[in-house]
Design a protein around this nucleic acid. Structure first.
Lengths: 242, 242
DNA sequence: GCAAAAGTGTTAATCTTACACCCATGT
DNA sequence: ACATGGGTGTAAGATTAACACTTTTGC
């Protein structure tokens, strides 16, 4: 509060560039996957002190000559071998004491990957491991918070953009898609209403092929039609799944 | 892509801590205000080279001993004299070449301030100036992008949380609130439907006082009831204004 | 008395929700 | 033939959107 006659304290522009202190900038990746009807998180065993051996997100320092987004992609590729993954910035964590060793802020980014049959290859390396999101271990530093925030963001985004498709293989069935949404929101959805809703969005392309892995009868495979999606977005269309 | 038999490239954990390069971390503030029925942005004349004299958001380097959020509050106080302002992290901008002088990433935060009669005090200092958001000057560096992103975020958030109240004085009338929403979304709203909707949310407290600044008849003042709001949020209530 | 903004309800259209049965197939 | 998951329609209820007139008061 300031009183009527006191001038407000206004910045001295020269201050702006007076105190310049460099610090470490890290990026940490929250990696989600979907497998066997469950939404999962990929975590890693921390290899360095302090907290060596604890579970942790995977991350890295951002290098001086690389864009922030690129740093995320690099971390992801180093950790999983996957390139050009869907990835979105979540939030930057900047508490002064968040890392006990040194001052370091971390830009968290979350990734959605198509797991498919590739899932256990990841686990063979460097203590990487998938956990179901309702059964996560405690993570190091503020990584628990990051995961909670990422889940909230994922739930929020999946309501408004057809983001869920990033977690499925290119071809998928409607029941698979429904399973995914049920896993994200942790509640059962009505199959008729779900089908009606997603088909009404007009972004799915029905293929002639069937997938018989889920049932004897088999379910028709669909593809996500990105062009239709972009057109509808421009037209101000609102995607809400339920 | 990797072939069936090649092991995926997985990160060498020791790499993580091998390349450590410090950089500057800045925070820039997108300051919104609402005055005379218009949504406005507070910008500043840049006082340092390069680009001295250009319009710019206000910002500062984050200090080693301060939390990121605190840095935002500090910048805001230095620039406007206002304390404990509503402020929310927007996004972190980390292109390698975003600042020509040196490597610097910037965490953008946006603030909503209650302008009231305080508006022109701000303009008297250091070239600070309010611009209407549909008539903004070009800003320095990537600040234009920051403002666009902040606007989008503001529009998005104002739909889901009663965030708009932060831009109004403590006591306000329903028509003023409607004006604000019209300014944010740049489209006219139906007065009857708007009133019905916001009142149905049960977060406004009607006062006995009237405000006669807007009309001869005067309109009843209302207060935002934060307790009710928090209760409803917990109960999973969904605030959508239209 | 008139101009200017505040305040008030109803109806049609749309969207959401709940709900139950037949189909196709592999075993 | 039966067990399993895939696929389909309808009706009731809730929400949204469109729309016009009366009230109050300062000038």
């Amino acid at each position: 509060m300031h009183t009527k006659n006191s001038q407000p304290e206004v910045f001295e522009p020269t201050d702006l560039y007076q105190i310049r202190e460099k610090m470490y900038v890290a990026t940490d990746c929250i990696i989600f996957g979907f497998h066997e009807g469950k939404l999962k998180l990929l975590v890693f065993e921390r290899q360095v002190e302090p907290f060596k051996g604890s579970w942790s997100l995977v991350g890295s320092f951002v290098r001086l000559d690389e864009d922030l987004e690129l740093a995320g992609q690099r971390v992801l590729e180093e950790a999983t071998g996957l390139k050009e993954v869907f990835m979105q910035q979540l939030k930057t964590y900047g508490k002064q004491d968040r890392d006990p060793g040194y001052r370091c802020i971390s830009v968290a980014q979350y990734a959605l990957i198509r797991v498919e049959d590739y899932i256990d290859k990841l686990e063979k390396h460097y203590g990487a491991r998938w956990f179901e999101i309702d059964d996560l271990p405690e993570l190091v530093l503020d990584h628990d918070q990051m995961v909670q925030d990422a889940l909230e963001q994922l739930r929020h985004n999946a309501r408004h953009r057809p983001i869920g498709f990033e977690l499925l293989p290119e071809k998928f069935t409607i029941p698979q898609l429904q399973n995914l949404y049920e896993a994200i929101y942790q509640k059962p959805l009505d199959a008729r209403n779900f089908r009606k809703k997603v088909l009404s969005l007009n972004v799915l392309e029905k293929l002639e092929e069937k997938d018989k892995s889920g049932s004897k009868r088999g379910a028709f495979l669909h593809k996500f039609n990105k062009e239709n999606y972009l057109q509808l977005l421009e037209a101000g269309y609102n995607f809400e799944i339920f």
